[in-house]
Amino acid sequence: MAGDRPGTSVNAWRPPVPGIAEVFHAHFTDYAYPAHTHDTWDLMILDDGSVDFALDRSRHGATGTATVLLLPPGVPHDGRTVTAAGFRKRNLYLDESVLPHRLTGRAVDAPILIDGPLRDRIHHLHVALRHPGDGFEAESRLSFVRERLRVHLDALRPRAPGREASRFAVALRELLDARTAAGVSLGEAASVLHADPTHLIRCFTRTYGLPPHAYLTGRRIERARRLLLDGHRPAEVAATVGFHDQAHLNRHFTRHVGTTPARYQRAGRDVPAPSFTKSRLL
């Protein structure tokens, strides 16, 4: 599926495999997406090119087909192309049944894993996921991927306790999570939390690494992706997740995902056949 930018292609779908919320394949040649968070683990492999990204305010670069990126849930990250050729990537969004959220702190400090066998396991899982009838094989391969990811995470030392998150930041995040679709004005949030509006924004940004409005937009985009893959019309999705109209959804969705909601949805209905061969379980 072609995206809005020359040389861009995106494919996304929700597989019938427990633990995998979404499969996302993309080729970006000139693209930078804004800081946002996911409520799932983002497991990514590169098929070509280089990517530059920030995670929890630390910048990283990844190159090469032996590279595996594991970005934890709830932690802000961005990303951008490095060269004119861009990069090709394959992502799996994994829920807590695969990796528990308690391991997030360990993953923040070491998001890049140089592990050829793990990369091979993820590749063969992607192959199986392109065949709806191969759900049992995909579950089996996911099990091997999870096993090796746990080896990496268990080997990392727990992150040293840092400054406690501001109580205002935590309270505002809970308010935004509870009112993702309805939204809340800054004045109302300040009134509910008994805080100065400017102080509230500063506390949130200092604690979570992005301003409240960017966090709320990212949460809405996350929900929109799920609804689109479930077959809901973009106009309906826009209203459901809290955007003013479909044009408002289109603008933010394209910035975050690299393609329009309609094209993203069509990709989920027409997953192309794989061009590589399957292999035995590792």
Rank of each mutant, 00 (worst) to 15 (best):
P6N: 09
P6A: 14
S9Y: 07
N11I: 10
P15C: 07
I20M: 04
F24Q: 01
H27P: 08
T29W: 02
D30N: 11
A32S: 13
D48Q: 14
D52R: 15
D52E: 15
D56W: 07
S58Q: 14
G61P: 03
V68H: 05
L71R: 01
P72A: 05
V75Y: 08
G79A: 04
T83L: 10
G86V: 01
F87Y: 13
V98R: 00
R102A: 12
L103M: 13
D115Y: 00
L129P: 02
H131N: 10
G135R: 07
F136I: 15
A138N: 06
E139Q: 15
R141S: 04
R148H: 12
R148G: 08
R150K: 15
V151T: 15
L153W: 00
L153D: 00
G162S: 11
G162M: 04
R163Q: 13
A165R: 12
A169Q: 03
A171E: 04
L175V: 13
D177M: 10
G183D: 06
L186V: 14
A190N: 05
V192R: 14
T198E: 15
L200W: 00
R202H: 12
L210K: 08
P211Y: 11
L216M: 07
T217Q: 11
R220M: 07
L228D: 01
L229N: 00
G231Y: 02
R233Q: 13
E236I: 05
V237E: 01
N250V: 11
F253L: 04
V257K: 02
G258H: 08
T259W: 01
P261Q: 02
Y264E: 00
A267M: 03
V271C: 00
P272L: 05
L281R: 03
